[in-house]
Design a binder for these strands. Structure first.
Length: 131
DNA sequence: AGCCATGCACCG
DNA sequence: CGGTGCATGGCT
């Protein structure tokens, strides 16, 4: 879910650590990687996926999200979802409006391979290995 | 004890 | 003066 700072004009979106390490490629350098993500309209966005050192851990952040957020008219409280299409590894994104009164559910139904998320055989091994 | 949202200091 | 990168505080 987008926070005020996520939706603000800073252009940075803080990513939950668990989500980042589960659905995005592992990165060992703070600069991270440029990610190509496709939305439900087929439009493609490029985000810089990186992290900041925080305490003894990391804070994962998506940079360059402002054009996407503006194009989708997202605001704080709205929910953004990411999924990985296997085996392509293609990233797709969807969003759900926070307006509880008007159920503007979008959900991304690309109906491509139909495989939502998997290809993760190391579920119960603990934290993802780094470097 | 750790995470995450945000404040903020330093650097251009 | 604005942004990046980080630290801190609130909260779980």
């Amino acid at each position: 879910m987008l926070s005020a700072s996520d939706a603000g004009r800073i252009g940075r979106l803080v990513l939950p650590k668990k989500c980042a390490e589960a659905y995005f490629p592992p990165i060992s350098q703070p600069e991270g990687l440029p990610l190509r993500v496709q939305d439900s309209k087929g439009k493609e966005w490029i985000f810089q996926f990186r992290f900041w050192p925080n305490n003894n851990s990391r804070m994962y952040v998506l940079e360059g999200v402002t054009p996407c957020i503006q194009n989708m008219q997202l605001q704080a409280g709205d929910t953004v979802t990411f999924s990985r299409m296997e085996p392509e590894g293609k990233l797709v994104m969807g969003f759900r409006k926070a307006s509880s009164t008007s159920q503007s559910d979008q959900d991304n139904e690309t109906s491509q391979t139909g495989d939502g998320v998997s290809a993760n055989g190391d579920a119960d091994l603990g934290p993802s290995p780094l470097v």
